[in-house]
């Protein structure tokens, strides 16, 4: 019997990818964002590969939602760069875009579903109109075509299309999230951002919305970044997980590894508190 390998007390350092040949779809480097004296995000790197679902988990104040807002170009950090693998734009740091370029890039290439549907939808407009707005910004003008594309997108989000001419105000929370989702995927975005998409919904409704997201992910291989404080949601959806605390990434890994063999004291506490 050989001596116990007590020296192996530290974690093995991982090598750079060799088998994954695709370039990352989303790359953020050295992101730091302060609000006054508060460091919301400090020196965070994010890499998401095409077709992957990255889950970002952490409690309120961990910086996860701020990070997502930066991915949506709603906020600009004090330091750091952001690239999406868009044809012709690979070399452009998206934080250097002006207001108009940002708006057009967001409409064309970034989809987002907010926890609060009021942030994503015009409550008095029709559901189909909310989805078509996205297409209009992207330059589509033919009415019949707009309506048909909106219908297809609502259908893909498993929204009952016979209600496409109602308004979000008349819908349940779960249905409002489906309209947001239809709007977000209408233009086949490079990345779909999900900010607590099922938080606040009934558990059974939550399961159905997550199932729709899973289906879409499987059928279309959409690259997603999902932010949630809910470990169950992250576990259901994510391929890889980043754990954030006080603006920093404390641990990241394959989803099953984060849940079955968490390394950091904070992640262990989080996972054990949940199970």
């Amino acid at each position: 019997m050989t001596a116990l390998n007590l020296a192996a007390a530290t974690q093995i350092t991982h090598q750079p990818p060799r088998l994954m040949l695709a370039e990352p779809m989303l790359t953020m480097r050295g992101i730091s964002k302060n609000f006054g004296d508060v460091k919301a995000v400090s020196d965070v790197d994010v890499t998401v590969y095409p077709g992957e679902v990255l889950g970002i988990v952490g409690e309120s104040g961990s910086g996860k939602s701020t990070l997502l807002r930066m991915m949506n170009l709603e906020e600009t950090p004090q330091a750091g760069s952001y690239h999406l693998a868009l044809p012709g734009r690979e070399d452009r740091d998206l934080f250097t875009l002006d207001r108009f370029e940002r708006r057009s890039l967001r409409a064309q290439h970034i989809g987002i579903v907010y926890q609060n549907p009021h942030l994503g939808l015009l409550m008095g407009h029709t559901n189909s109109g909310n989805v078509a707005e996205r297409l209009l910004i992207a330059g589509k003008r033919n009415f019949a075509e707009l309506r048909e594309q909106a219908r297809q997108s609502l259908d893909a989000s498993e929204f009952p299309v016979e209600r496409m001419d109602a308004t979000p105000r008349e819908l349940s929370g779960g249905m409002q999230q489906r309209v947001q989702l239809a709007k977000a995927i209408a233009l086949e975005p490079a990345v779909l951002l999900l900010d607590e998409p099922t938080t606040g919904l009934d558990v059974s409704v939550q399961a159905l919305v997550l199932d729709t997201l899973k289906r879409l992910q499987r059928d279309r291989a959409i690259t997603m970044v999902l932010v949630s404080h809910d470990l169950g949601v992250i576990r259901t959806m994510a391929d890889r997980v980043m754990v954030m605390r006080r603006g920093k990434v404390v641990e990241q890994g394959l989803a099953d590894q984060i849940f079955q063999d968490p390394q950091h004291a904070y992640t262990q506490q989080l996972v054990h508190a949940k199970l």
Partner: peptide
């Protein structure tokens, strides 16, 4: 021994493990 050469499962990148 992958079809594309040898890789150490103990230290391979997470995305490579996902590929495998």
């Amino acid at each position: 021994h992958t079809r594309e050469g040898v890789i150490d499962l103990a230290s391979a990148a997470d995305v490579d493990i996902a590929v495998l």
